[in-house]
Design a binder for these strands. Sequence first.
RNA 1: GCCGCGUUCGUCUAGUCGGCCUAGGACGCCAGGUUUUCAUCCUGGAAAUCAGGGGUUCGAAUCCCCUACGCGGUACCA
Length: 502
Amino acid sequence: MEKVRVRFAPSPTGPLHIGGVRTALYNYLFAKQNHGACILRIEDTDRHRFVEGAEEYITESFKWLGITFDEGVHLGGKFAPYKQSERKEIYQQYIQQLIESGWAYYAFDTAEELEAKRKEYESEKKNFQYDMTTRYGMTNSLSLSEEEVKSRMDMPYVVRFKMPEDREIVIQDLIRGEVRILSNLLDDKVLYKSDGLPTYHLANIVDDHLMEITHVIRGEEWLPSAPLHVMLYEAFGWQAPQFAHLPLLLKPDGNGKLSKRDGDRLGFPVFPLDWQNPETGEFSKGYRENGYLPEAVLNFLALLGWNPGTTEELLSMDELIALFSIKRISKSDAKFDIEKARWFNHQYIQKKDNHELALIFEKMLVALSIQVALPKIEQAVALVKERLHLLTDFPEQSLFLFVTPEEYDTQVVKKKWKEDTPIHLTEIQKIITNITPFDKTVAHDAVMNYITSNELNTGQIMNCLRLSLVGAAKGPDLFEIVGFLGKEESCNRISRAITLLS
RNA sequence: GCCGCGUUCGUCUAGUCGGCCUAGGACGCCAGGUUUUCAUCCUGGAAAUCAGGGGUUCGAAUCCCCUACGCGGUACCA
């Protein structure tokens, strides 16, 4: 058995959130570093919140990101099944054990009764909690006689944990150190629902134990229920795994957890892949479709709440695995910064092979009904690569290389296009035409020679030439463009500009 | 309300058990340079009195206490 076994256990209630991706990444890095196992478990014990397609989305996201699991749904493993809805019988057995040992009890209070109770307390500015102070006044196997309990067993009921009194529960957290809480403040959580399925708390503890999980690395939102989990391990007589509660990812502006709404509002993705909710039709964009490279997303995410202890920030997956350490995870929440994510993406695009990029861009061009041979695209990549922050920047950065400009930037025209411009451009066109064999360097020298010998304004002429070829005052080196377009197309564009702008 | 966790430049963070921190790096921002254009790139700069207040100490961002603020939790959701 591996000495380290971790798990990522999402609930299929929607697309995988970017914060979840980071949690999964940390689990993955920790497992790989320790030659352990990383498990993917689906926690689908809430039937009401189940969303069609969410599980497939999660799987596909990890596939894109390059995070692999050693065991889990779709993968199998020695502790299968890895989907909680397929493990119902297992939980029934364990909840029975808890009832028999006196750690849990049946409760018959209906949702309406509980709601009424809460309202009642609320009106007195108090908070109702199903706990040691109230449980004997409620309808459960603690307050009812054996006979009464028996008679109610064919009606819906839940099973609650009987939180022990006067205990100081200590959680040893790998990130936060010791966290202490008094058991008297805790409530009797429902472990088993009336629909025959366990709640997260029960299923989670049973599965982590059965699957021999050694380290639970999860979001800080779980810290408040960690004492319950610790007590459950005690109730079962099991050794608890080690805990590490991760700081949360916060929205870039203001406060609060990063949510889908923030992404929509601020215009950046919060999910790895595009997602459309099958029920509401609501659409959410993903990093993949927005032109991010998975390695950039991962690198950026890894550094949100963790650092290697050096000033190096560009880290490959292998480097992350080697360098990762739970000790270096920070305690405080991190605000999400899409600008830095863009910067990482820019860096990774520069590292990426031109041919690989060309294959990606070929599809984008096809989608725009532009057919270009792959070697030509690769050539274009070499020209515009360094100006790309997102893969999706490619079309707008390179379109003029493939398509003759339809319009000319009016600002530039106004500023640079003079009365004698057509005369000079016509001359330059002749110069270019006469170069055989055609060569961009020769073309450059010849044009420069024309400009200097006629004592012309270099910038003004060059900008007009650029305007003719590109349609705007942007783009890579002018003669690289001329070289890319070739003699004929370059001359055609010059003619066209002269006609349209004079 | 109650419980828990947290608090260093706008943001991500460094700051190994107090002294080398007149607080370092990165993103972003600003300026200059390179480029006949734009972007990239290079150089430089502004930017945190270390949340505030008390201690302890020769000496504190680093230790202790209090306060404030932020976040999380408080469901038959995970």
